[in-house]
Design a binder for these strands. Structure first.
Length: 559
RNA sequence: GCGCUCGUAGCUCAAUGGAUAGAGCAUUUGACUACGGAUCAAAAGGUUGGGGGUUCGAAUCCCUCCGAGCGCGCCA
C-alpha cells in the first residue's frame, strides 16, 4: 500500500537528515483535506533530540523527501508546529481502485495474525434457561471479533462453555422437579415460565415416571437445544460446545489441584484448599476446594482454560460482562501459577446492556424468570437489525437497548442505511445490463476520469479500510467497522446523488469517448460494493442485492 | 472504605497524544417527471463533569474532587 511506501520513504528521508527515526514512522490521515493526503508528526517527535526547532527539522526532512522522487508524491508542506503534510496526485486513488478490484473477496484481509490459533470463548451463558436479550451483545460482538481476527490471518475457534454442573444446575433440577410434581418452588428456584412449560412437556411425554436426575438431564438437553436454535437464528455457529462435566469426569480438575499442590502454591486453611494467587498478582488468595470438598468455579475454570490451550490454541480470549471483572486477575494469576503463561486468557470486558421498555428499565434476572429473551427480540426484528444494534457502540459504553425503539422503528435502524447502499450498487449493475452497457476490461477503463470529490472521498475511505479493519481487530473493537460502514454508506449515497453512473450525456463532455465516464464509475461502484460487503461480512450482517420494498399502505392515514 | 469501567452537542454515541472535537436522531431551511427518497444538501447546536499537572501539543496520560455503573463470597 502507498502508505507503507510513503512511510518507508519518510524514514529514509529522516535518516538522510542525520536523524534517528522513531521505531515507528507513522503517517496519519489528516482530518482537514487541506492538510494533504497523509501527514507526519515525525519532526515534532525528533526536534528535541535534534536540538533544533521542529519546523526547521521538518524543512530538512521535506527537502530530503522531495529529492527522493516518491511515486505520486506531488509536494510536501511544513505546517503548524512542524507537521509534514504530504500531498499526492489523484493517481494513487486510481491505483487503489485497481487494487480493490484485484483483491475482490480478499480486500481488507491481512496476515499479521497468520499462524496464530486463537480460541475465542463468548456467550457461555448458563444452560439453565433461554438466552436473554442483553446477551445478544456478546453474541454479536463475539462473532464479529472472530470474523475480524480471521480476516487478519488468525485461525479462530469459536467456543461455548456449558456450565452443566454445580449449584445452578442443582437449582434447575429442584425447580424442574417442583414444577413436575406440582410442589412449591424452592426459595431460589427458577421462576421462569419456561421451567413450568418444560416440566409439563416432559410429564406429557413420560408421565410421572421420571426421576429428578432424568428430569434434569432431559430438561437440560432441551434448554441447550433452545440456546443453539436461538444462536442459529442470529446466525452464529460455534466450533465447540464444551461441557464442564468433561473436566470432572476425565479427572482434569483433580489433576489441576495435583499440579498446583506439587508446585507448592496451595495451602490448607479453615478446612479449605487455597491457591496462593497473591504470588501472581491477585488481590488475595482464592479458594480452590471448599470445606465441603467441592471445587470452586475458579478451580474448574483453570482446568478448562488449560484444556483449551492443550487442544492447540496459541492464545485464549474470553468475552465477559463487566460484572465479572473481579475474576480476571484470579483466573490469569491461576493460569500463570499452573502453566507459567502470562496474560492468558485475554479477557475482553464489555459493559452490560440495559434493557428498556415503556420507558422503564427491565432488570434481568434469570431466577426471577420475568426476563426478555433473545428469541423475543428475534421474533420482532430480523437478525441483521439486532446484530447491528449491538455492534454500534464501543464495549466500554453501557448500552441501552430500547425494545420499543428497536422493534417498532426498526426501519430507522442504521443497518438499512448501509444495506441500502449495497443494494443500490447491485441495482446500478442490473440497470447497466438492462441498458445494454457492455463492460470494458479494467485495463481499458480510464480511471483518471474519477476526479469528482464524491468519487475521491469514496476512494479515500476505501484506502483506509484495511487499516481500519486491522485496528478493529487489534483493539477488539468491532464497533469501528460499524462506524466505517455507516460513514462509507453515507459517502456512497452522496456519490449516487451527485454523480450519475448511467448517463450517456456525461461521457461526451469529459472527452473520454462515449461511455468512458460510465465505465469508470461502474468500476468505482464495483469497488464500493467490495468494500461494503467486506464490512458487513465482518459484522455478520447480510449485504443484500435488493431491499424488500416498503409497503405504501403503512401510512397512518385517518379516515 | 478499596478496585475496575465510565462522564463529550438537547438525546444516543464517535474520535491510534495531533492541527478548527465529529456523526446520527431531534430542531430549522432547502432538493425528487430519479441508476430505489429507506436519499441528499445547508444551518444551528460544545469551557469534552470541576480543578491542577506532564509537553511543542491533552477528550485521550498523571493527581485530586464530584457523579454513574459494576465488583470486593468456601456464588457463578
Amino acid at each position: 500500500m502507498i502508505r507503507d511506501q510513503l512511510g518507508a520513504a519518510l524514514r529514509t528521508a529522516v535518516e538522510a537528515c542525520g536523524l534517528a527515526p522513531p521505531t515507528e514512522v507513522r503517517l496519519d490521515v489528516p482530518k482537514a483535506r487541506e492538510h494533504g493526503d497523509f501527514a507526519s508528526n515525525v519532526a515534532l517527535q525528533l526536534a528535541k533530540a535534534a536540538g533544533r526547532p521542529p519546523r526547521v527539522v521538518a524543512d530538512d526532512i521535506a527537502r530530503a523527501l522531495m529529492a527522493a522522487d516518491v511515486a505520486h508524491l506531488e509536494r510536501v508542506e511544513v505546517a503548524g508546529p512542524g507537521f509534514l503534510n504530504l500531498h499526492l496526485d489523484p493517481g494513487w486513488l486510481h491505483d487503489l481502485l485497481r487494487a480493490v478490484l484485484a483483491a475482490g473477496d480478499t480486500w481488507g484481509t491481512g496476515d499479521e495474525l497468520a499462524g496464530q490459533r486463537i480460541n475465542l470463548e463468548f456467550v457461555s451463558a448458563n444452560p439453565t434457561g433461554p438466552l436473554h436479550a442483553g446477551g445478544g451483545r456478546w453474541i454479536a460482538v463475539g462473532d464479529a471479533t472472530a470474523n475480524l481476527l480471521a480476516a487478519r490471518g488468525a485461525q479462530v475457534h469459536r467456543e461455548y462453555y456449558l456450565n452443566d454442573t454445580g449449584n445452578q444446575l442443582d437449582m434447575l433440577r429442584e425447580s424442574l422437579s417442583a414444577r413436575y410434581h406440582g410442589r412449591q418452588l424452592p426459595e431460589d428456584g427458577y421462576k421462569g415460565a419456561y421451567v413450568t412449560e418444560l416440566a409439563s412437556e416432559l410429564r406429557g411425554e413420560h408421565g410421572d415416571a421420571l426421576t429428578d436426575d432424568e428430569l434434569c438431564e432431559l430438561g437440560l438437553a432441551r434448554l441447550i437445544v433452545g440456546i443453539r436454535d436461538d444462536l442459529a437464528r442470529i446466525g452464529v455457529h460455534f466450533d465447540t460446545w464444551f461441557s464442564e462435566r468433561t473436566l470432572h469426569e476425565r479427572g482434569d480438575v483433580a489433576d489441576v489441584l495435583r499440579v498446583l499442590d506439587g508446585k507448592g502454591i496451595t495451602y490448607s486453611a479453615e478446612g479449605a484448599v487455597w491457591l496462593r494467587s497473591t504470588d501472581f498478582g491477585d488481590d488475595r488468595d482464592r479458594v480452590l476446594v471448599r470445606s465441603n470438598g467441592t471445587t470452586t468455579y475458579l478451580c474448574n475454570d483453570l482446568a478448562y482454560h488449560r484444556d483449551k490451550l492443550a487442544r492447540g490454541s496459541d492464545h485464549l480470549i474470553d468475552i465477559w460482562g463487566s460484572d465479572h471483572h473481579g475474576q480476571v486477575k484470579s483466573l490469569q494469576a491461576g493460569l500463570q501459577a499452573l502453566l507459567g503463561v502470562h496474560g492468558e486468557p485475554e479477557i475482553i470486558l464489555g459493559q452490560l446492556v440495559k434493557l428498556m421498555r415503556d420507558g422503564r428499565e427491565i432488570k434481568i434476572s434469570k431466577r426471577a424468570g420475568n426476563y426478555v429473551t433473545l428469541a423475543d427480540i428475534l421474533d420482532e426484528v430480523e437478525a441483521d437489525v439486532a446484530r447491528m444494534t449491538f455492534l454500534l457502540q464501543s464495549l466500554d459504553t453501557k448500552q441501552t437497548f430500547d425494545l420499543d425503539l428497536v422493534t417498532s422503528q426498526s426501519m430507522d435502524n442504521p443497518v438499512y442505511y448501509v444495506q441500502m447502499a449495497h443494494a443500490r450498487i447491485a441495482s446500478i449493475g442490473r440497470r447497466a445490463t438492462e441498458a445494454g452497457v457492455s463492460r470494458l476490461p479494467l485495463e481499458q477503463v480510464d480511471l483518471s476520469l474519477l476526479t469528482h470529490e464524491r468519487e475521491t472521498e469514496l476512494l479515500r475511505a476505501l484506502a483506509d479500510q484495511p487499516e481500519m479493519i486491522a485496528a478493529a481487530a487489534a483493539e477488539r473493537a468491532p464497533h469501528k467497522v460499524s462506524h466505517w460502514a455507516l460513514d462509507f454508506a453515507g459517502r456512497f449515497h452522496g456519490f449516487y446523488r451527485d454523480c450519475r453512473v448511467l448517463d450517456p450525456s456525461d461521457a461526451a463532455e469529459v472527452g473520454g469517448g462515449p461511455g468512458a465516464l460510465t465505465q469508470a464509475r461502474l468500476a468505482l461502484t464495483d469497488a464500493c460494493g467490495i468494500g461494503l460487503a467486506r464490512a458487513l461480512g465482518l459484522l455478520g450482517v447480510h449485504a443484500p442485492d435488493e431491499m424488500a420494498r416498503l409497503d405504501d399502505d403503512q401510512d397512518p392515514v385517518a379516515g
